[in-house]
Design a protein around this nucleic acid. Sequence first.
DNA 1: CGTCTTATTGACATATTTCAACAAAGGTGG
DNA 2: CCACCTTTGTTGAAATATGTCAATAAGACG
Lengths: 242, 242
Amino acid sequence: MPTRCKDCPLHCKPLFQPQTDAETTFMQQFKRGELQVQAGTTLLLEGAASPQLYTVLKGLGLRYKTLEEGQRQVLNFAFPGDLLGLQSALMGEMSHSAVASTDMVLCVFDRGGLWDLFREQPGRGYDLTYLAAQEEHFLGDALATIGQRDALERMSWAILKLWRRAEALEMTEGDSVALPWRQQDLADALGLSLVHTNKTLARLKREGVITWQEGRLRMVNRARLAELAMAEDGEIITRPLF
Amino acid sequence: MPTRCKDCPLHCKPLFQPQTDAETTFMQQFKRGELQVQAGTTLLLEGAASPQLYTVLKGLGLRYKTLEEGQRQVLNFAFPGDLLGLQSALMGEMSHSAVASTDMVLCVFDRGGLWDLFREQPGRGYDLTYLAAQEEHFLGDALATIGQRDALERMSWAILKLWRRAEALEMTEGDSVALPWRQQDLADALGLSLVHTNKTLARLKREGVITWQEGRLRMVNRARLAELAMAEDGEIITRPLF
DNA sequence: CGTCTTATTGACATATTTCAACAAAGGTGG
DNA sequence: CCACCTTTGTTGAAATATGTCAATAAGACG
């Protein structure tokens, strides 16, 4: 039996803004069901018109674009609470693909109901715009990092982003967190070769900043990581949960 | 005297979707006035809470982020019809800056009215989300290009994007268009050094693909450029004009 | 026991950056 | 009108970060 929106396990996480009862009720009737998928499943395909809009309920994934010559650019990593498929819902087709990196559970919404949502729940429409703008913000940061910084700085930035995200979702256990991604995923996210990614990661370990073994990232010297990442490491900015 | 929305010179351009009379009327009363600025003027500043939302009416600009060590990443180039300041309106502060590259005229909207807009004109709210999602789409493409491709391909991609944009706004004259940006702007957009940008541009000229002198870009071999850019060069995708 | 995936490491190749110098154009003040 | 300065573009040579190639190791799995 699917999770009811009022029992959603994500609301209580520090990452999300509170929701009114009216909103939760509306989301409940807007929700079509739940989708359970295995690790490795393609959730969305670039160019395809996905009929559905998803919110990640459990598990981790990633979004990527594939270029003509087979290269892959990872755009970002998908965590619980992330919305997938908004572009398709709005523009008719996806500009990127998405894949499950672990087993996942997704809330399914019908894209056809989007128009009603804007009409009947302007606050929810506003929130959708907010989420799109926040994604734009993130991609701008990523672009600046990849366009302007060297491998060690890029890697530190990405790891700090992952860590802070996991922390805001209470997925961390002490100074470590389980993450399913391979070095190849990191390499494709950072615009680096696999070999250079490995060597850069090795350097971060050697210098006592982090460790990352058997799918578990461990924060050894967070201050140093933040310094290398040149990113703020202060309060989490909350966002609406859709 | 400011341009009235129903006389807006942009509606007739092929880039934009038609607007209903009701929408135009609403935008007219939502519009606060017009801002005229000289080339070089900073329109928005990263981190600042701009009280206003702008639409470019005339002229060209660019959006950028500045990193700690003074490096600059150009996120994109602003053309007529582009919305500036949405992030600040939604999230309280800008994640990037914007500057006028030529003299510009901007329509000014009050960010405080945004909430009313979502309530009273759900279609306009939907359009705002669409625009934010489209910007996200663009940044994803840019990230993939900069992360995965070499200098010649990046440059070709950027030039084709600029050309197609100008074309959709009927700014081109035959096979050429006037563009105000310097090689340094291109370099900062593509994540390349100024020197390498210059040499890459020289190569495109030498091979008879384009010329770019005295602020005027000329398309010499568009098919070849599109091939290098590995980007679609078909129909323009229209978007709402805000 | 093979086969696959992932991680690791060294040697070498190369794209891009950095440094440095110069040229052309425009503005400004004497 | 001329000297001077700033901005922008151009070019060559040297330095370096990153990519590519190749080989090995370790674990998972049938």
